[in-house]
Nucleic acid binder design. Sequence first.
RNA 1: CGGAGUGUAGCGCAGUCUGGUAGCGCACCUGGUUUGGGACCAGGGGGUCGAAGGUUCGAGUCCUUUCACUCCGACCA
Length: 417
Amino acid sequence: MRFSKLLIPTSKEIPNDATLPSHIYLIRGGFIQSVGGSGLYNFLPLGKKILDKVRNVVKEELDKVGCQETSLSFVTPTALWDESGRASEYGKELLRFKDRKDNDYLLSPTNEEAMVNLVRQTIKSYKQLPLNLYQINLKFRDEIRPRFGLMRGREFLMKDGYSFHASVEDMQREFYLMEETYKKIFTRLGLNFRVVQADSGQIGGDGSKEFMILADSGEDDIIVCDACDFGANVEVAKESKAGDPCQCGAPLRMTKGIEAGHIFQLGTKYSEALNATFLNEGGKAQAFEMGTYGIGVSRLLAGIIEQNHDDKGCIWTQESAPFALQIMISNIKDENQVALGEKLYALMLEKGIDVLLDERKDRFGAKMKDYELIGVPFAVVIGKNLTDGMVEFVTRDGMQKESVSVESIVDFLLERF
RNA sequence: CGGAGUGUAGCGCAGUCUGGUAGCGCACCUGGUUUGGGACCAGGGGGUCGAAGGUUCGAGUCCUUUCACUCCGACCA
């Protein structure tokens, strides 16, 4: 992609309502844009691209372990929620409206009812179980107080998954499989996170674990061990405090976490309420044992930046980066710089590397500031030193600069990408 | 929903107290110069001052009503 053709409105101005780095940099970097309504954002091309990359990581790992992607209707008949009783329980967070025939609908904030409805219409026998269905699409929650940009919007991209089983044991097996799968997803995205025991909240059910991205700006207090992967929600681990020894012996530490994933052992709460049954081996109707598993995909973007930024801008992790490499031509009036930049750009494209070529008319400083703000992991800077036969290879994390000769730059890049 | 604020150009803000031709910075357009850390000069475009009503010769400014948004608290991926 050529920078000059890309819609990426970067800005020096800090939005007046932004306090978190992720909020500031996602807007300043032209990834997202405020709609004007509270907690509503447009995704511009670069933001959408990152969203899709993160989405794909989630999808790939889920599909690997047998989950199947679906897409339930965003608009849900309120009648389904009357069956579960949540239409009256859920409160004002639930956005309700009527169609032209005066029927009641809602914008789904989560889809237990809708998915149970799908399964009860489809699954009749224990032979068709287990089944794990998910979707990655928009959710709407009319939050009391939206804030922090993508961290707590009203409209957001969420992966919600639901599994159906003939026995509690099988549901628990799936629950642990999902825990392991979520760990792989968070690890691939380059996140420092902890899995903590949690309350089950509105959804209900017994066992429940939260995936917390460690960041000072998090809204949840958690207690963690830096020596092992222990972590617990403070509300749950009331007896523990900072300095206490962990089960591994190292001292515990208090910190903040961003909840980006949550998995539940649901049991039969929804299947019973919606009368969703299958015939078991004995030929008797039995309610599905269920698990439910969520990941805040758009919140992950914010979480990645909360954990990976400096005072200049974003530092995207490898799997989340909008481009693998950026090539910068410092001065487009220098024919040699342009020639080398175009050559490297064409070569990288040919190799299938997702590369951004900054060939704008601007001066070096402006382009560098934009590079730092946008946060592509690596850059090749073609500039003044080209007269000495040298270019620079920049690593965004730490802004280390390495001089590389023009003769060896191609091999240097091919080795790395 | 309680408490505190803010609505003026795409963004960030001044002007409101004390009524008198709507301003600044960034961004944008034209021309020229410039090109290693967000350039400079000259010219230019862009506003029913959140909305409605009122007071007044005259309202961004005063009064009334209303809407939206932000921040602090209780909820959540």
